[in-house]
Simulated assay, not measured.
Amino acid sequence: MSRKKNPKSRNASTPATLALEAAGTPFTVHTFTHTPGVTDFGGEAAAALGDVEPGHICKTLLVSLDGGPRSGALAVTVVPVTMTLDLKAVAASFGAKKASMADPSAAERSTGYIVGGISPFGQKKSLPTVIDASILDCPTILVSGGRRGLDIEIAPEDLVEVLGAESAAVGRS
Rank of each mutant, 00 (worst) to 15 (best):
S64G: 13
T35R: 07
T111Q: 06
E53H: 08
G117S: 08
S9H: 15
K8Y: 12
A99I: 12
T17S: 13
A75N: 13
A169I: 08
A99E: 09
S119T: 07
T77F: 10
G122D: 10
K8V: 15
S100G: 08
L163S: 05
L62G: 04
S134W: 01
S173P: 12
D132W: 02
I131N: 10
A169S: 12
G55N: 12
M101I: 07
G50K: 00
L65D: 01
S64R: 14
G122F: 02
D132Q: 12
K124V: 09
A133M: 03
T77L: 15
A107S: 10
I154G: 03
R147W: 12
V115N: 09
K125Y: 02
L18H: 11
L74I: 07
A92G: 15
L18A: 15
F27W: 12
R109H: 08
F41D: 04
A75T: 12
P36C: 07
A102S: 14
G43E: 08
D151I: 11
A99C: 14
K125P: 05
T140C: 15
L127T: 02
P69A: 13
V52H: 14
S13N: 15
P104D: 02
L62N: 06
I135E: 00
D137E: 14
L61D: 00
Q123N: 08
V78C: 13
S2W: 13
L127R: 09
T25Y: 06
S13E: 15
A19M: 05
G112S: 13
L49S: 08
D40R: 01
D103C: 09
A46D: 03
D151A: 12
P69Q: 10
L61A: 05
K88P: 10
H30L: 11
G42M: 04
T14C: 14
A73K: 15
T60S: 13
D158N: 02
A46I: 04
G50H: 03
G72W: 00
I135A: 03
K97D: 00
V160L: 09
V160D: 02
F27A: 08
T25N: 05
T31C: 02
I135S: 03
D158V: 01
T39W: 02
S134I: 09
I152P: 06
E44F: 03
S126A: 11
T140D: 14
A91S: 07
V81N: 11
L85I: 03
L159Y: 01
K4P: 11
G149D: 04
R70P: 03
T82A: 11
S71G: 13
E53P: 05
L18F: 08
R10L: 03
